[in-house]
Design a protein around this nucleic acid. Structure first.
Length: 328
DNA sequence: AAACTAGTCAACCGCTAGTCA
DNA sequence: GTGACTAGCGGTTGACTAGTT
C-alpha cells in the first residue's frame, strides 16, 4: 500500500502555529458542514493547510466541548488509574475523561504525572514501586499495581506495617470467588482501598439506579490497589464515611470463578481477573447494576462474621489459563 | 540585561486500521 | 483480493515561556 503524502509543503500548504483567522475559518466551516471529510475540507474552507492538520486543530483545540485549564486532582487520579489499565493508549484514556484530549493527557502525563511518580519511587510504565522486593514466582504472585498517590502512601504503609491474620486479601478472595466477573476492577479496588474487613454495610436505593455502599475499615490498610474508574454510571462507594469520587460500574453476567490472585500476605492484583477488553466491555455494556449491588450487599453483610476459608487464588493456575484462553 | 537552561504544549510525522470500489 | 483513500493513534519535535545564572 502506498501511503498518501499528507502535508505537501511544495503545494504551498502552511505549517506551524494556527492564526485566529485560520481558526475562525475552520470553526465556521465545521459548524456549517459538520466534522469529517478532512481531506477536502481545507480547500472548501479556504485554508492552506492539510486535512490532517485541520482535523488535529479541531480535535485538540477548537472543539466546543474541550475542557481547558488545569487538571483536577480527580482527573489526575483517573489518568493514573486508566494508565495502569491501558498503558500509553492515550485515546482510550481520553475516552474516560470527557472534555480532555488524548494529546493534552499525553502531555500532562509526560510533563507532570510521570515525573511525580518517578519522584515517589514508582515506575510510570509498570506502576509498580521500584522498592518492592522480588516475589517468589512459584506462587504466581503479581506485584501490586499502584495507580495513585494514595496508593503510594498505602504502599509505604504496607511495607512498613504488614500484618498477618485476616487480611483484606482474604476478604477480597471471598468477594472474587463469589462474584467473579460480575464485579469489575474498580469496585473491587475500591473495596480494597477501604483497607480491611467490612464491619457495616448500608445501602440506599433512592432511585432505581442509585446505590451506595459504606465500607468501614478498622484494621489494616495493607492493600493498595485504589482505582478511579472513568465511567459515570451511578454507583457510589463510600469509604470510612467519605464518599469517593469514583463512580463504579457493574456487569450482571453470572459467572462464578476463582480468578483472584494474592500471595500469603496482602498483595492482590486484578489485572488477571479482568483484562482490558473485558473491563471495557463492562464499561460499555453494564447499565443496570441495582440487582447486582443488592446481591453484593447481601453477600458482604453475610460475610462480616463469616470465617469461611477460601482457597488461595494461586492454587487456581488452571483457571487463570482457562480465562487467558477465553479472552485470547 | 543577556545568555543559558528547563519546562510546557501545540503541532507534526509516521504509521496502522478500517472502509470502499 | 487489491489498492486507494480516510481517520485516528502514539511518539516526537520545536517554538515559546519562565526561571536561573
Amino acid at each position: 500500500m502506498v501511503r498518501t503524502p499528507c502535508c505537501k509543503a511544495e503545494l504551498g500548504l502552511k505549517k506551524g502555529a494556527w492564526t485566529p483567522e485560520e481558526d475562525q475559518k475552520l470553526v465556521s466551516y465545521v459548524n456549517r458542514h459538520g466534522e469529517g471529510g478532512w481531506r477536502t475540507l481545507p480547500e472548501k474552507a479556504g485554508l492552506k493547510r492539510c486535512g490532517k492538520s485541520c482535523r488535529l486543530r479541531w480535535a485538540n483545540y477548537l472543539r466546543p466541548d474541550i475542557k481547558r485549564g488545569e487538571f483536577t486532582e480527580d482527573e489526575e487520579r483517573s489518568i493514573i488509574s486508566l494508565h495502569a489499565l491501558h498503558g500509553n493508549k492515550w485515546a482510550a484514556i481520553a475516552r474516560g475523561l470527557p472534555g480532555r484530549t488524548d494529546n493534552e493527557i499525553k502531555n500532562h502525563w509526560n510533563t507532570h504525572i510521570k515525573k511525580r511518580l518517578i519522584k515517589k519511587g514508582v515506575d510510570p510504565v509498570t506502576h509498580k514501586s521500584v522498592n518492592l522486593p522480588e516475589i517468589p514466582e512459584k506462587q504466581n504472585v503479581i506485584p501490586t499495581i499502584i495507580t495513585s498517590d494514595v496508593d503510594l502512601d498505602n504502599e509505604k504503609m504496607k511495607n512498613n506495617n504488614k500484618k498477618p491474620g485476616l487480611s483484606s486479601a482474604k476478604f477480597l478472595n471471598r468477594v472474587a470467588n463469589r462474584f467473579g466477573k460480575r464485579i469489575n476492577q474498580s469496585v473491587l479496588s475500591d473495596i480494597i482501598g477501604s483497607g480491611g474487613p467490612v464491619t457495616t454495610i448500608t445501602t440506599s436505593h433512592t432511585a432505581a439506579t442509585t446505590t451506595s455502599v459504606t465500607v468501614n475499615s478498622e484494621s489494616d490498610k495493607s492493600t493498595s490497589s485504589s482505582f478511579t474508574p472513568a465511567s459515570s454510571l451511578p454507583c457510589q462507594m463510600t469509604v470510612n464515611g467519605n464518599a469517593t469520587s469514583s463512580p463504579s460500574t457493574f456487569s450482571d453476567a453470572s459467572v462464578n470463578d476463582h480468578l483472584m490472585h494474592c500471595d500469603n500476605e496482602d498483595n492482590i492484583e486484578f489485572s488477571r481477573f479482568l483484562n482490558d477488553e473485558d473491563f471495557m466491555m463492562f464499561e460499555e455494556s453494564c447499565v443496570d447494576n441495582t440487582e447486582f449491588m443488592k446481591e453484593l450487599t447481601r453477600f458482604l453483610e453475610e460475610d462480616v462474621n463469616d470465617d469461611l476459608e477460601v482457597m488461595p487464588v494461586y492454587e487456581h493456575q488452571e483457571k487463570f489459563e482457562e480465562i487467558d484462553n477465553y479472552f485470547a
